[in-house]
Write a protein that binds this DNA or RNA. Structure first.
Lengths: 222, 222, 222, 222
DNA sequence: TATGAATGAGTATTCATTCAT
DNA sequence: GATGAATGAATACTCATTCAT
């Protein structure tokens, strides 16, 4: 807010006439950094422990701030959780916009070069973790699930339905099952997510491979 | 089921054909009733609130017993949770034993008359709920997941793999994707489970329909 | 372990006309046995854990009876404790009655052949344990301490005072310290009791040796 | 004692001779006050009730803090007990270092002007109470007893042994009983401690008088 | 008399949240 | 804005005691 007015104060044992280059007042950059440190720390904590077992003081420690500081950014633990997960959800969308399909490009090919590619790093980019968090805590945070559904699931399913229609039109697909149940296309991805996260974390499956095999069955190349 | 344990009184050696020897002390039947009341109550509580938010005293209240009574049966909240879920898991197995396939019966037909049928009541019989509980709490209860995987997932996937091989052999199935990834067959079920439980409980999908559509794509009739 | 004790009932599947030598109704001997089993068990439990940490159910188990049985003999845990300790106190008295001193026998000699001898088995006979129990729990059980003082300490100290007077009279003892503070004679015994029980149980002192050295200083032979 | 720790604020580098740099956060002095209030309260509670019957909430109340506050300083009731008793033990040592004996001063005289004097306020200074606490709870807190033995008993007994040797050398003492059993010198003190604390609190003995009479018998003046 | 299932008052402990500095 | 000491509601768990059988 008051840009460049305030110093971290510790840096400013300013006695008479000893004035720093920057004026006093809170530095907005620092605030933003602090906030990011807190959300990052909180995400880790929530991913590791789940909401109920996450401890606010741990979040503060991980972020390198005092116990009370997170409360300056989020009024409650719940608000922190929702805020953090909401932000992460926002960046996790997988886009298979039919408009990007090249003219004459088979739907299968299009999905392979877009969605399948996105699946390669679903684990490393944290998207799978967020999905698991939503699954585990969704029951207690319907608002979060609403966002997730609205921003992630529904748009994706809608795009897939369009693609299914196109695939039906160009003969790649026989029958209307995928048109009626476009979710069937992403079901293996969810399976991979829960398998790797919960069912058998010690023997993780490659989600992309799983998805590719599924594509091969449902939308065979050629 | 617990006939052996509970009838200790009825089995007791009686004299002139009349009343049992064991005349003193509390009745074992009551114990069994109490235990059942507690596990039932606990299951509801855990399903509603999750492990961390379940309150032992609520369990007792729901069961109509005193606060301390559940501790006579389960040493800790954790033991209660594991005990209850374990018992439920035991009764949730879906069996598609290939040995039950009629000679000459197409694999698709077999799956439709066994697995698809089982899916009709997956929600009402509590199997879906248990699956969700395992998903939500599995991170904190690896032992539970181990059981679930060992008793539910792995046997089922093994059976499916066998069926996939059979399907490949009799020409129902082209390619070996389902042989390599038999999980793909049940992925839609998991999707339905998490969809109905978390992603959009207000618009539940019919899991059987979803599964049937999937079967139609992967193992078309005729 | 308790097979022998507990099946007293199982051994008597008495049917019609098969009548035991003893009539029915409670056998007074058995009652007495049960009572003794309980007090013995309770003493061990209290000695091991102290009053507060002693558990009634453990007492019952050690005694080979059901949880409720001790309550038929002692109304409360406190009553059990007091009853048990009281009984033990009764049997622990060390008698140095001056009347037993042989005519002309030096007081020192008399004490060596009576009290010193009693000290040899103070640990093995449980007298030291009881003393420690009284010390540790006396604060919470003044009534117990009253008994202990009245039945053990005061009579003993009175006897010692008499002996001190006699010793003074016959020239064994110079000065009236032991007449005024007869407790000084038994102080080393108490020291030994607390040393062996609390201060350093791993290097127990021989209480009799300690007491003898003390006697040698205070009432030297010849 | 804690001068170093507590004056951190006063020591802070100040500018033109005015207010300290550390302007933010709670004051460390208050922390020290709180801690002391808690340990003091805890000591009273433990002395009155013993460990098992002491109630944490009472400690907090006595200290004038909230129920949770003691846990900021001591992780558990046990830690609080050990911490408090440990601190008290540290300040309770009775020193009769032979090096302080004046040249030519009789050992008896030395003990009268050092140890006997220390005995005058053994009850008022809380040393007797601590000893009783160690006696009563030592069974459950061996670590505490270890400290007590290492810091109090053993050094004292070692010093007494040295003095006994000196007394033997200068003819004050005949025989080697006190050299072999130096504990005999302090036995009356222990007797007084347990007598006043447990055996007959309503008729407390003057421990110093008791000890003096003992000295008179063992190390007579002149 | 004896049994042991059930009771529920009593307590240690945790941790989100507040607020004086 | 930031700090971290203090707060106190919430809860798991224990165990003496009761009483129907």
């Amino acid at each position: 807010m008051n840009a460049t007015t305030q110093n971290s104060r510790a840096d400013a044992p300013t006695c008479a006439g000893d004035k720093p280059t920057r004026a006093r007042g809170p530095s907005p950059e620092k605030t933003i950094q602090t906030r990011r440190a807190i959300t990052t720390a909180a995400l880790s904590e929530f991913l590791e422990k789940g909401f109920a077992n996450a401890i606010m003081e741990n979040v503060a420690k991980r972020a390198g701030v005092a116990k009370g500081t997170p409360y300056r950014y989020f009024a409650t633990k719940e608000a922190l959780f929702e805020g953090v997960v909401r932000e992460e959800i926002a960046g996790a969308f997988v886009d298979v916009n039919p408009a990007n399909r090249a003219p004459g490009e088979p739907v299968g090919a299009f999905l392979r070069r877009t969605m399948l590619v996105a699946m390669r790093d679903i684990e490393t980019k944290g998207r799978a973790s967020i999905a698991r968090l939503v699954l585990a805590e969704g029951g207690r945070f319907p608002a979060l699930v609403d966002i997730y559904r609205r921003e992630m699931i529904e748009p994706l399913v809608a795009q897939i339905r369009e693609l299914a229609i196109a695939a039906q039109a160009n003969g790649e697909l026989s029958g209307d099952r995928l048109v009626n149940y476009p979710q069937l296309l992403i079901a293996p991805i969810w399976y991979g997510i829960i398998y790797n996260g919960v069912l058998d974390p010690t023997h993780p499956q490659n989600i992309a491979d799983l998805f590719e095999a599924h594509l091969d069955m449902v939308l065979p190349r050629k």
